[in-house]
Nucleic acid binder design. Sequence first.
DNA 1: TTAGTTAGTATTAATTTGCTACTTGCTATA
DNA 2: TATAGCAAGTAGCAAATTAATACTAACTAA
Lengths: 218, 218
Amino acid sequence: MTEQEFLKEYDSSGFQKPSVAVDLVLFTVRGESLQVLLTERSQYPFIGKLALPGVFIRIDETLDEAAQRALYQKTGLHDIYLEQLYTWGALERDPRMRIISVSYYALVPDSQIPESEQNKFSPVAEILQREDIAFDHREIIRYGQERIRNKVSYTDIAFSLVPEEFTLPQLQKIYEILLGQKLYKANFRKKIADKIQPTEKLTSGTKHRPSRIYRKKD
Amino acid sequence: MTEQEFLKEYDSSGFQKPSVAVDLVLFTVRGESLQVLLTERSQYPFIGKLALPGVFIRIDETLDEAAQRALYQKTGLHDIYLEQLYTWGALERDPRMRIISVSYYALVPDSQIPESEQNKFSPVAEILQREDIAFDHREIIRYGQERIRNKVSYTDIAFSLVPEEFTLPQLQKIYEILLGQKLYKANFRKKIADKIQPTEKLTSGTKHRPSRIYRKKD
DNA sequence: TTAGTTAGTATTAATTTGCTACTTGCTATA
DNA sequence: TATAGCAAGTAGCAAATTAATACTAACTAA
């Protein structure tokens, strides 16, 4: 069978293809909670409901490229590290037609993502309670949160939510919010000791003892 | 925008859709090595080369269903627990056309999968050395092995490679092959102690001290 | 000066891991 | 009928990690 033969046969068999989309789960930590970026849908289906930002994949771009394009089109950001989360393929997940969605997630510092009337962060805990999230996006968010909780323990992803220079109480707070539990200060510091570098600087303007400012090592 | 309007617009925009396939990475432990099931391709492209078993997804089946169908069509097996691994979307991964592949993996006891002239297990270590594996399937296998190494440490997947009744030396061997390293007998036993139940039975016919036979707890 | 508040450190107990060495029960053979 | 060989199974200790508590330090406000 040659390529020509194959393509002819494949084409003539004419089986329908699903559409493929990419959806983004952009997390941040703001205040006391883990939050996720959602857009209010302006079109059918689920008009007015909250959904993850996403795009249809083009025939000439990879999945990673489509994810970066979605990121840029929806937030204006470039070059954020996105990691593939899971691929969703239930039959009726989109009422229009068969759409398979490859989800990606990222942790982005609060300040870096511009919000708008359409694009807003919402607390994950709240979203997971709601029944009115578009498509299966609530489940995708739930799964993303689970993935993060796992990854936080054995990678450095938590650092991506903190600025260049940070204090240890700040960093610990991030860890606690991502993990959903309090940590012991002394133990926390032992564990991350080899990943941080102290600077000469201290915070100022606090009502209490200032804290030392650190940077990530390497 | 109504559904009709959307579909009309979507259709008339007429952008090309990629094809979507599902590929299976079926692992087993045989002898001293981790092995993976590969088929020898009989068609263009990569005729004669080894590839993972897979199928194109149909418009009316979910990804999980497609994976189970691939399993059945290629091995005759039903109801094996398959877990989604990763979705591969490089542009030129298939020379025929744009195909996105959702990969699934499973650990199956050696004996359960029937082999044939076309369908054979090969040691993963060997496959990873070879340059002549079809498509990007070598990379998929590599990624699957990595996933397994992680999962073995914090789940019970290793038990799925062992029969109902097994000895601890047997089980330890499985762990060692999956992890790619020797384990200390005493520590290994402490760690899995709460996952196993002793039976009254012992092995027989060995040249040395017989070992106790266990079952998985729960 | 002192109370309030958070930053940061010291210390100890409990658990897990890494590692060694032993005892046990079988077979083969001298 | 000893005993050597061999793998199964157990005991135990040192080192490292984790859980938890209690302390000291440095600032502000009153």
